[in-house]
Structure formats: C-alpha cells, structure tokens
Computed example of a mutant assay.
Amino acid sequence: MDWLPDHPSVVCGTQGVVASGVYVGGRRIADVAIEEAGQWARRPGHVVWLGLCEPSPELLHRVQVQFGLHDLAIEDAGKAHQRPKIEQYGDALFVVARTAQMVEGRIAFGETHLFVGHGYVVSVRHGASTSYAGVRGRAEASPLMLAHGEDYILYAILDFIVDNYRPVLETIQAEVEEIEDCVLASNLGEHAVERLYMLRRDLLRLRTAVRPLVEVCRRLEHVEALAIDAAMQPLFRDVTDHVYRVQEEIDALREVLAFAFEASQMIGQAQQTAITRKLAAWAAILAVPTAVAGIYGMNFEYMPELKWHVGYFAVLGVILLSCAMLYRKFRRDRWL
C-alpha cells in the first residue's frame, strides 16, 4: 500500500540533521556534531538527542558508527513503509510509529523511527510529519522531567505523535457532520458519495497506523521486559490511553459514515419508490380513457350506443367519473 504521498508540503523542509544537542541533568549544554555524538553519549549522565529528517544512507551509516546501532534497525530506518513496532537489540530499542496530517482534504501518512539507547535518542522522520522542534522546546522547558533522559524523550515524541492524530480526526469529524446534514436535507449526490467512500478508506488506513501503537506502548509499560525507567511507566500508560481513545474515535467516525451512506441509500430508494408509485397511479388513470377509446375505435357494426344522441356525453361522463374516482383513491393512499 502506497501510503507515503510524494507531496512537497508534507516532507521535511530540511533533509539530514535537523537538530542535535547534549543534555545533562535535563539542561542543554551544547550542540554536537555527529562525529562527536558517540563520545558525548558515553559520558555518565549525558544524553545526546539527535533529530534526522529523510537522511541519506551515508548519514545513517555515520550515525550507526557513533552509537553502534544494529544493522537491521538501520536498514529499516532507511526505508519508509514500515509497520509500527518495537524491537530490542541488546540494551537498545528501535521504535517505529506512523504520523498523519491533513493535506488537501486527504490524510497524508509518514513515519518516525526512534533509536533509544543508553545516553542517546535518534529520531528519523520520513514523509508527512510535524517538526519535533516543539517537542524539544517543551522538554527543555521542563528540566526536571528531561532529567529522566532518553526514556522521557521517547515518551515525549510518542505522545506528540499521538496528539497530532487529534487535529486530523477533528477535521474529518467536521466534514462528517456536514455530510450528515446533507443526508437529512436531501439525498447525497455522486460527489458526496465519492467523498464518503474516500473518508472511510482514509479512516481505515489511519486505524491501521494507530492500532499497532497500542502494543508498542503496552510493551513500554512493562519495565521488566525492556530497559525503561520505572518512573516513566505511568507516562507510557497515559500514551496508551490516548491511543485507545483515538482508535475509538476512528471507529465511531467510520460507523457514522456507514450509517450516513445507508441512510442516503434508504432515502434514495424511498424517493425512487415514491416516483414509481406516482407513475403507476397516473398510468392507471390514463388507462381508462385509453381502454374506452380502444373499444370504440374497433369499428364494430353493432354498437347501439353509437346511435344515441347522448352517447358521446355518456361516454365522456363515464371516463371522467372513473378517472376522478381513481385519482381520489390514489390521493387517499398517498400515491399522488
């Protein structure tokens, strides 16, 4: 599934190294070059936070050399189209999460790959993703929390990714409400039906991107299984709750869209039935003069009523009376 669109407004503005810094006790003490990052990360109490965007294979190799990253993790980080997951390589973690943004009325998807180890965090962004400069700024504004090091940075990035699903859902929810109003007002047009299908498909893709994050966060909660600070466990549990709520909202929106489509179909069928009834009623009414005219148009020799002086008016009276009775009956039965 080609879920990473080639759109200039959703890819990284600056490719390569976006930001890098060294933190001690929750405070940034210096910027760091990649060639020096490994040395800083090995110092006790130091944490290197390196942000990359659409890195080249050569840049990834340089980062791998500095932090001793696993070959398989580097291979995955060089490719987008990875399923959200968490893998452990020795004392290091490799986390994949999908990001989402609204672009020209469609959900554009991207990816973030996170390398987390003792003394370092490396984030690699691909495709549609908001800059993590805001995450870094908020983290630096809370040195007590940032003092927890790489575990808190991992939480901050995952929480930011999950929170960014909400604007997407709010935009879709507003459009869903407009579709509901259209359904109640009249039958959906062809364009509205196409849009409805497109929204349902995008929501399904978003659900596919969100759902695996539940398992990722749940694994991060179990500190006995992974090298995560026990104090961070409640924070990762909070992210898990946010993911659950996002998933529930996605399911609710998909159900509303399904109901809207079904309601539109039912309204359309009801309108077609009403039109068919009207046509049938008028056909029955017109059948009376047609039948009478057909009888008198057969030119039989013995038709006594043709000799009556009032024969013409009698036939017209019978036709009008019959049509009036049929019209009244159809009106009473609400066919007309």
Score class of each variant (00 low, 15 high):
residue 94 F to G: 01
residue 95 V to R: 03
residue 97 A to C: 10
residue 97 A to E: 04
residue 98 R to A: 11
residue 100 A to M: 10
residue 101 Q to M: 14
residue 101 Q to T: 07
residue 102 M to W: 10
residue 103 V to R: 13
residue 104 E to S: 12
residue 105 G to M: 12
residue 106 R to Y: 13
residue 106 R to S: 15
residue 106 R to A: 14
residue 108 A to S: 09
residue 108 A to R: 01
residue 111 E to N: 07
residue 111 E to V: 09
residue 113 H to L: 10
residue 114 L to A: 08
residue 114 L to R: 06
residue 117 G to L: 08
residue 117 G to E: 09
residue 119 G to S: 14
residue 120 Y to E: 01
residue 120 Y to A: 03
residue 120 Y to G: 02
residue 121 V to I: 05
residue 122 V to E: 09
residue 122 V to S: 12
residue 123 S to L: 11
residue 123 S to C: 11
residue 124 V to K: 09
residue 124 V to E: 13
residue 125 R to F: 09
residue 127 G to P: 03
residue 127 G to Y: 04
residue 128 A to E: 10
residue 128 A to C: 15
residue 130 T to H: 15
residue 132 Y to R: 07
residue 132 Y to K: 04
residue 132 Y to L: 10
residue 133 A to H: 13
residue 133 A to Q: 15
residue 134 G to V: 10
residue 134 G to Q: 11
residue 135 V to D: 06
residue 135 V to C: 08
residue 137 G to D: 14
residue 139 A to I: 05
residue 139 A to T: 02
residue 140 E to L: 03
residue 142 S to Y: 00
residue 143 P to E: 06
residue 144 L to A: 13
residue 145 M to W: 12
residue 145 M to F: 12
residue 146 L to K: 08
residue 147 A to G: 03
residue 147 A to K: 07
residue 147 A to W: 01
residue 148 H to E: 14
residue 148 H to V: 06
residue 149 G to F: 13
residue 149 G to T: 11
residue 149 G to I: 07
residue 149 G to Y: 09
residue 150 E to Y: 13
residue 151 D to T: 06
residue 151 D to R: 01
residue 152 Y to E: 06
residue 154 L to S: 05
residue 157 I to V: 14
residue 157 I to S: 01
residue 158 L to V: 06
residue 159 D to R: 04
residue 160 F to P: 04
residue 160 F to H: 15
residue 160 F to W: 15
residue 161 I to W: 00
residue 161 I to H: 01
residue 164 N to I: 07
residue 165 Y to K: 02
residue 166 R to K: 08
residue 167 P to F: 07
residue 168 V to F: 04
residue 169 L to Q: 03
residue 169 L to C: 10
residue 170 E to D: 13
residue 171 T to A: 12
residue 172 I to L: 14
residue 172 I to P: 03
residue 172 I to N: 03
residue 175 E to Q: 15
residue 179 I to L: 15
residue 180 E to R: 02
residue 182 C to R: 15
residue 182 C to L: 15
residue 185 A to L: 14
residue 187 N to R: 14
residue 187 N to M: 11
residue 187 N to E: 12
residue 188 L to Q: 02
residue 188 L to K: 04
residue 190 E to A: 09
residue 193 V to F: 00
residue 193 V to Y: 01
residue 194 E to L: 08
residue 195 R to D: 11
residue 197 Y to L: 08
residue 198 M to N: 11
residue 198 M to I: 06
residue 200 R to H: 11
residue 200 R to W: 02
residue 202 D to Q: 05
residue 206 L to P: 06
residue 208 T to P: 00
residue 208 T to A: 09
residue 209 A to T: 02
residue 209 A to Y: 04
residue 212 P to A: 05
residue 213 L to D: 00
residue 213 L to H: 00
residue 214 V to E: 00
residue 215 E to T: 02
residue 216 V to H: 01
residue 216 V to F: 00
residue 216 V to A: 04
residue 217 C to N: 03
residue 217 C to Q: 00
